[in-house]
Each structure stands twice: as C-alpha cells, then as structure tokens.
Design a protein around this nucleic acid. Sequence first.
DNA 1: CTAGATACTTACCACTCGGTAAGCCGTCAA
DNA 2: TTGACGGCTTACCGAGTGGTAAGTATCTAG
Lengths: 208, 208
Amino acid sequence: MAKASPSSDTRTAFLEAATTQFSDRGFYGASIASIASDLGLTKQALIHHFGSKEQLYGEVLQRIADQLGAVVVEAVSEESDPTRQLERLLGLLFDSRRVQPEQTVLITRELLDNRPRAQKAGTWYLKSFLNALIALIKRVPGWESASDGQALAAVYQLLGAINYYAISEPTLTRMFGKPAYRTLEEAFPRQLRALITACLENPPTKQR
Amino acid sequence: MAKASPSSDTRTAFLEAATTQFSDRGFYGASIASIASDLGLTKQALIHHFGSKEQLYGEVLQRIADQLGAVVVEAVSEESDPTRQLERLLGLLFDSRRVQPEQTVLITRELLDNRPRAQKAGTWYLKSFLNALIALIKRVPGWESASDGQALAAVYQLLGAINYYAISEPTLTRMFGKPAYRTLEEAFPRQLRALITACLENPPTKQR
DNA sequence: CTAGATACTTACCACTCGGTAAGCCGTCAA
DNA sequence: TTGACGGCTTACCGAGTGGTAAGTATCTAG
C-alpha cells in the first residue's frame, strides 16, 4: 500500500501540468490533449477526471487562489507590526515569481481575458485577496482614515509594480542580454523596498 | 475621385479591427475570419492584403510601437525640465488607457506569450521605448550617477503600476461594483502622482 | 481593344479542437 | 462467480482553424 489514493495522484498531476500549460499558452492556446500527453495519457482520461476543459481551468484557478490566501496568512503570522506585515507580504509575492511564475502569469491572463467576456469564477478569489490587502494597509500608521478606494489604489500600484515585473522578466532578459539584466535583477528589489516604504510613509491624508 | 487610395483604406480598417480582436482574445484566440467579417469581408481578402496571420499581427505591433514613440516625443517636446518630462510621459501613458486600452492589453499579451516561445518582432520596438525612459530618468537631478539597471528598475516599477491598473480596470469594476470603483478611479491618479514624485526624489545614490 | 493589375470571391484542403460513445481491464465487495 | 465501479483506451463526430487555388469583376495603361 504505497499510495493512499491513486486517482488523486493523477488528478493533481493533471492540475500541475494544466497550470503550466494554461500559463504558457493561455486558455485557448492550451489543448487538453497536450496537457494529457504530458502525463503519457490521452485527453479522454483528462475529461474523465474533470468533465470539461472549463472545469479543469476553474480548479487550476482555485488552487492558485488557495495558495495566494496561504501567503497572506504566512505574512500576517510572521510579523506583528502592520507595516512589517505588509512589507513581508509584498516581499513574499515578489519572491514567489521565482518559485511559481505560473501563478502571476495565469492571474494576469485572467485579467486580460476577463476584460471583454463575462467573468469566470477566478475573479472572486482575487477579491478576498485584495480585501485582505486593503484591511492590512488601513492598519498602517497614518492610513487609518484612508478610504477603501485610496487604500486599494496604493496597494494596487505596488502590486502592479511587482506583478508586471514578474511577467516581464524573461522578455527583459532577452531584450537587454544576460549581463545587463543582472544589474537590473540586483537593483530591482532594493528599489522596490524603497518604493514600498515611500508609499506607506505618504498616506493620502498628509499628502502635499 | 473621392478617395485617394482605396486599398489603403481597407488595410487600415483591417489593422484596426485586428488590433481590437487580438487585444480581446489574443493571437490564438482571434481568427482571421472573424476579423474580416468585422468589415463584411472574407478571410481571403485579409490574406490578400497581409499574406498571413503572423504578418498582420506584426503590423499591428508595429503600429502600436509607433504610437508609443510618438507619446515619448510629445512628452519631451511639451516640457523642458527632465523631471516634468518624465511626469508628463507617465501621465500621458496613464491617460491613454482610456483612449486606446487595446495598446496596453496587447503589449501585456506579448509579454506573456513571449515568455516560453522565441520573441517576435514586437520586443525590439519596446526596447527603444524603454531606453528612452532610462535616458529620461538619468537626466533627473540625483539620478545622473545611477546605473542603467537602477534606472530601468525604477522606471519599470512605475510603468508596472500604470499598466497593471490599466488592464485590471474592467475586472476591478465588476469585482467591487460601480459605486465603490468610482472612489478608486478618483484616488488612483492622485496616489500615482505621489508615487512618481516619491520615486524620483529617492534616487538610489542617497537611499537610506 | 487588349493586357495586366487590384480587390475580392467561392471552393476546397489538411489539420486541430473539445467532447461523446462504447468498450477494455483490473480491483474489490457480495 | 458475479457484478459494479473506477481508470483508462480507441474510434469517432461536428465545428473551426490558417492557408491554397482558381476564378470573377472592375479599373487603368498601352
């Protein structure tokens, strides 16, 4: 009895393969046949487990949302000071671009694809994440009286700085060449920390 | 002889339709038949003008790159002070999300799709744009001695804050509802201006 | 009047897509 | 032994993809 639940193993294997393929080629660009062949299986095996391509995609988004929520919990539990909690959270998000670049890419794809058409399930998971960020920044000294809109604006700018860089890294590397990119790679985190503290120290109430 | 060049009219009409469709659905998601039917024509008419879907896509990217370059020229010519030039440029980019949202969306799609596969032509246009931004910030007081990597890091963070918000706007609207979104819509530009000046006033040389 | 080019059309091709239907095979319970 | 079930297969379907081939209508230059 080496394996506990054989079916759940292939399920998560499918989910992982699907995550990278959806991330690389988008929902329409990725085919269920290609995802299945990554595991040496046929597309009908995938259909058997998930019912349809859309449901598979939904589960992939769900997993990402769960992991995103876990990062929030981790940051909050590691620090006590609200400012540090936020800095830690943004730092963790920035670092995760190395371990799980597919996450940021997939979320960004969702933002792009959801523009015209009706929203899929994915958007709602993001909302609770953003609400957590809003709640966090409103506990930072000077930000208590900020409106939700002001809080979201500030937080979303920092999030944009992080995520846009995360999805651009490969392109920037090829564009400027490895050696030139190394200096950017080194300068970015320092500059980012400076930007975050500058933002947190300038709440809208005491802006000039 | 009402029209000067009949063929160029349909060509630009094709380019405009293609821009919105590529922006909405991505390269793979958009079909040449659907683009052509927007003008009441068949896909073979499109092939007749552009040769292939890839070439059409290339011309769409080229147009966007040209318009991006024009924005740089506009910002530089309108202001004399380097700080104001940069602020004006970023402001113009932020405003353009209203007039031409397809541009930002398409560039972001390029960043995502270029991750795994070899880069298409589009990347090179972006490089000259980024180089212009680097040159601009290095003329701002205090930034003269910054390295290219430091300059790009700072500029790319601001660019990310702007572009990520631009592609997120529709999703954020649906997520928080129109009334709540209005306050964000109002707070964002002000917060962005504060972020830009905070960034420019904190060059890496005198960072604590 | 004719030759050629331009701007399009219909017809067709090979291929891929997501999904259905039906069956095969091993495990496990009655 | 039998029957049900989960996990997977092959076979197949209709729809849609980008692209080719060949033709038609219109206008213009020689």
